[in-house]
Design a protein around this nucleic acid. Structure first.
Lengths: 92, 92
DNA sequence: TATGTAAATATATTATTACATATAATTATG
DNA sequence: CATAATTATATGTAATAATATATTTACATA
């Protein structure tokens, strides 16, 4: 689903948390965590923000032109040094 | 309210858009744009993502330890997050 | 392999809330 | 003031979130 919920699911697993454990930290039932991770529901902003923070992530709004640079930083890649390929920004 | 909706409100104004114009681009009624900007409702993730993208912003999840560096980049500031540089190295 | 059992995740049903439509209030401008 | 332009509020409907239950997965042990 939304790339963001996929990331959050991956982040939960990376921390070794079960859906129920995460749910408890967030005050959400496990069943919700399941639905959100499956992409079978469109969660509220506050839910996503809380979720991210529990996993030491912060949602930020990044100007489109900076997205690939910042993504590289976050992924620990060594600054691709791209020469303006005409089209880079494909996202769902 | 949530820092993020404040940012989105500011971004709309920076582009000189009225609530109704933004709403049209998003397929949302103006009344709903109003509620979200006032913080009197907790919008869905998809709404915020669409909203951001219309304003050339992309929501991203940033690891906590990188937040201030990235915020500096985004705001065009000159890296305020130096950690105990014993003395300021010459910087161009 | 088959079975038992517990842990982990998914689904069903009901309650709460975002969103749509219509209208009102506010702010700007002549 | 009057009138228009912009933003806020009221009420009904569709979707998310809560509660309870079911299903799937993992790991035993015979």
């Amino acid at each position: 689903m939304s790339n963001m919920t996929d990331q959050l699911k991956a982040a939960r697993r990376a921390k070794g948390l079960k859906q129920a454990e995460l749910g408890k930290k967030l005050g959400l039932p496990q069943s919700h965590v399941s639905k959100i991770e499956q992409g079978s529901t469109d969660p509220r902003l506050s839910t996503i923000v809380d979720w991210a923070r529990v996993l030491d992530l912060e949602p930020m709004l990044i100007p489109r032109q900076m997205v690939s640079r910042i993504r590289a930083l976050v992924n620990g890649e060594p600054e691709p040094e791209r020469r303006w390929q005409p089209d880079e920004e494909s996202e769902s």
